[in-house]
Design a protein around this nucleic acid. Sequence first.
DNA 1: TTGTAGGCGTTATCAT
DNA 2: ATGATAACGCCTACAA
Lengths: 354, 354
Amino acid sequence: MIPQKTRPATIADVARRAGVSKSSAARALGSYGTVSAAAREKVQAAAEELGYRPNVLARSINTGETKTIGVVVGDIENDYFGLATRGISDIAKKAGYDVILINTSENPEAEVDAVRILLEKRVDGLIVAPATALVTDHLQDTHRAGVPLVLLDRQIETLPAVSASVHIAPAAKEATSTLLAAGHRRIAFISSLQTHGETYRPGMRIPVSSVQDRLTGIVDGLQQYGVEPTKDLIRFNALGERVTARIIDELLALESPPTAILASDGLIALDVLLALQHRNLEIPKNMSFVMFDDARWAQLMTPPLSVIAQPIYEVGVSAATALLQVLAGAYPAASPARLKARFINRKSICPPSE
Amino acid sequence: MIPQKTRPATIADVARRAGVSKSSAARALGSYGTVSAAAREKVQAAAEELGYRPNVLARSINTGETKTIGVVVGDIENDYFGLATRGISDIAKKAGYDVILINTSENPEAEVDAVRILLEKRVDGLIVAPATALVTDHLQDTHRAGVPLVLLDRQIETLPAVSASVHIAPAAKEATSTLLAAGHRRIAFISSLQTHGETYRPGMRIPVSSVQDRLTGIVDGLQQYGVEPTKDLIRFNALGERVTARIIDELLALESPPTAILASDGLIALDVLLALQHRNLEIPKNMSFVMFDDARWAQLMTPPLSVIAQPIYEVGVSAATALLQVLAGAYPAASPARLKARFINRKSICPPSE
DNA sequence: TTGTAGGCGTTATCAT
DNA sequence: ATGATAACGCCTACAA
């Protein structure tokens, strides 16, 4: 049974079969104009028999809209984006928009590609979690093309786009304060943020706002206790299990090693925990631990991990809502209210052993 | 700075600005026909200045192809599909195809929608992880539309489509045998497969081949030890934390409760573990445990969990490769070799306590 | 090498 | 209510 390369039925085919003109058929199938009940029935029957499917490509050429919004996420393997995507889809669907997704596998070039592809497919709007605030040409393009853009999780000041994100600094500060109150003074922060070799220094420009926000809270908490953040403890570029393991080694080799670690997200947390496990370091006995994102496995660990939980699904909802408002004609776009993160203290913090 | 609803530049605009005809401009920009070097330069310059972007929609109307493949997955929050998607994208990109993704949130109706949407967008090929072999109309549609289809993770006999999947029965059998050898005779299997109320009976038709394959291996192992699988221990419809918790309760309330549990995938494993934790049951002391999929957190648990690992990324690669072959003209499609799962015995199995 | 004219499948405008 | 006819942006003969 060879698949017939049978050209799909067009409106003209349907019209011919129903014995009416092309435009009548179009009116009967589309929801505009006026058609007699008799004609409508004949057309619908014919369409059914022929298995007619409107060619949305042709339609979009005329109408200029695709009823589709494009979503670009850093990596779908991060539960964070999985949930956010769900929030986006749920809202978009209700408003009659389709959602198509492109995953960039944390690759900045892939992000540029993804945006280009989606613009080429003429999506009506775009939701992007930008990898870095440093390269934004492709995002400027969307603006130039007149396609509304909403940023997810991260904001970029220089861009004419609103952002749906979580105000995470207060919770980050609370987590840090809790560590400090337990007696910790050497607290490490590990992130997969790419800085191209640059190490931490106070006031440095962090190209991803959601990481910046984490740091703001942490530094704020530290300084309240008179502790200065240092480049040996604030660590970036932890991409992948191997690199992260090396960073852990470097931390442990310090003259005074950290007694607590904050992991910047659920993915990096796994790498960190794996490295600690391989070195036979127990939490919290040998190392206190807090992670950003309340991954489902976090509470299953022994001991259950203290986390900074973000309302991720709601971020997606918020982003989609903002975008849909613009698509519905609202201008300027209203910046969505920032959602709040919260610190959940489980059992992965105890006083430092020494 | 109001975004100009400036109609994007067309080939006609470029041609006018470059002072040549439409078709010359088209030739210069596309890679067909012949153009003089002089004309080509003028056109390219004009295109650059105008920020010209070819309208792929219009192009596809003529050429009949979109250079895009559509992927439909059950839920992106399952790491399984995240990795598989990555495998697909990597291969597709190399062949010059874009990949767009639609997530169905485990909702069968959403799957039908997703397929319709992608067919409407005229993707050149489709990769789908079908929720159930019972409703396949939408998949028959793709065949009727002449769009090549490759199934991911699951196969459906009645469908003219090849499938990229893992041969998981042997590893499942090995896991089961290991449990039996440790002394277990009451072994439960928990899956989120929807059966619409039907309970397990030997020989029942399981509408998802990947679950069927798991069961085949398990039953095979059981029978080797003279143990009969029963409906009170083989449980389906565990969707969500609450339902799964109830199933666990039912299992524990049995006259002779299970002493070991096999979880059908990483997501359901989380629900099961959470339920066990809440009931203060320890692994493996009170309950031995094996899960399908080697989720990254599995080896971080205390104790590290024994798993049946699948080469997920490779399944994606395999699916994409098969599809691309068909798109390149191969017919009939060659069924990709089935990949092998393997049992990794960590520390979550010990002899039953009683 | 270049331009003209027609077609892809829709929607939109205009008479009838 | 209906049917021609043009338009959308691109590709593809075909003729010049």
